[in-house]
Amino acid sequence: MAAPSVQEVLPPSLDSTSQPPSLFDGSTRLYINYQCPYAQRAWITRNVKGLQDKINLVPIDLQNRPDWYKEKVYPPNKVPSLEHNNKVIGESLHLVKYVDSNFEGPSLLPDDLEKRKFSEKLIAYSDTTFVPEVYRSFAKDARTLAGAHFDYLEKALHKFDDGPFFLGQFSQVDIAYAPFIERFQVFMPEGFDYDITTGRPKLAKWIEEMNKLDGYKETKVLEQEKTVEKLETSKMHRQSPVKVTGASTLVSNM
């Protein structure tokens, strides 16, 4: 289960006027953006493993990025990235696995081989299918097209009955989906009069249980009105393809 929560004061975001931290001085730093769902994955992982005093948060203003972030820290110029052992690595799902494997704290994968195999399938589905297809549905028929993917998750939540999470107990899989379901649950009732939990009791229970985890709740810094406004912009630009592949896109800049 998740480690006990450590309440922390969140640092201010760094922008083009900010000086860089003392890079590669032996500290471990997680570069994030408070509104980015991809960065939120790594942030949740840090929190639920109880690593608040081991991994320092360095929030980056994606709308006014400091030049030194691309030049000296992470050339792809995206978040999240992790500075650890004199190197910097990125990509949200990779960082979830990396932090889980290389730091102390409760393991976020079960020993059960069947569950581990299922976790690989669900984690792959999150970014290859679920996230891009739900966002693309905003330009077409969100109720029908997105609904099929929420049905997939509902079915997946029925596979193991030893807990309310995707693998029964809380795991990397829940972290992969949480930031996006969080946003869809807020926006879709407003944007499309569509409640993603209607007829999906397992998904509703999953959301309820996720919201009890301090390590996750502490990452929910988005104001609901701003979430709706950002995603409404996506809906208004429905004639243009919705790109969801990088942290510089609309989706990850939220």
Score class of each variant (00 low, 15 high):
7 Q>D: 12
9 V>K: 13
11 P>K: 03
11 P>M: 03
12 P>E: 10
16 S>I: 09
17 T>K: 14
17 T>P: 01
21 P>S: 07
22 S>W: 02
25 D>S: 15
25 D>T: 08
26 G>M: 06
27 S>D: 12
31 Y>K: 04
33 N>W: 09
33 N>T: 13
36 C>M: 06
49 K>N: 06
51 L>Q: 08
52 Q>T: 10
58 V>L: 06
63 Q>T: 14
65 R>D: 03
68 W>F: 08
70 K>A: 13
72 K>Y: 10
72 K>F: 10
76 P>I: 12
76 P>R: 10
78 K>F: 14
82 L>A: 13
86 N>S: 15
86 N>H: 15
87 K>M: 13
87 K>S: 12
88 V>C: 10
91 E>S: 09
94 H>R: 10
94 H>Q: 13
95 L>Q: 05
96 V>A: 04
97 K>R: 11
99 V>R: 03
101 S>Q: 13
102 N>D: 02
103 F>W: 01
107 S>D: 11
108 L>P: 01
123 I>H: 00
125 Y>H: 14
125 Y>L: 03
127 D>W: 02
129 T>N: 07
133 E>D: 12
137 S>V: 06
138 F>G: 01
139 A>S: 15
142 A>P: 04
142 A>V: 15
143 R>H: 14
143 R>Y: 09
145 L>P: 02
146 A>E: 04
148 A>G: 14
149 H>N: 09
149 H>V: 02
150 F>Q: 03
151 D>T: 08
151 D>G: 01
156 A>F: 05
162 D>M: 06
165 F>Q: 00
166 F>C: 02
167 L>E: 00
168 G>S: 11
168 G>R: 06
174 D>E: 07
175 I>R: 01
176 A>L: 05
177 Y>L: 05
182 E>S: 13
184 F>L: 06
185 Q>W: 00
188 M>H: 00
194 Y>K: 01
194 Y>I: 01
195 D>L: 06
196 I>A: 03
196 I>T: 05
200 R>L: 08
200 R>K: 14
205 K>L: 15
205 K>D: 11
211 N>G: 15
212 K>S: 12
214 D>V: 09
219 T>C: 07
223 E>V: 07
227 T>F: 00
231 L>G: 08
231 L>M: 06
233 T>M: 11
235 K>N: 00
236 M>R: 09
239 Q>R: 07
241 P>T: 12
243 K>V: 14
246 G>Y: 12
247 A>N: 03
250 L>E: 12
252 S>W: 06
253 N>G: 14
253 N>Q: 15
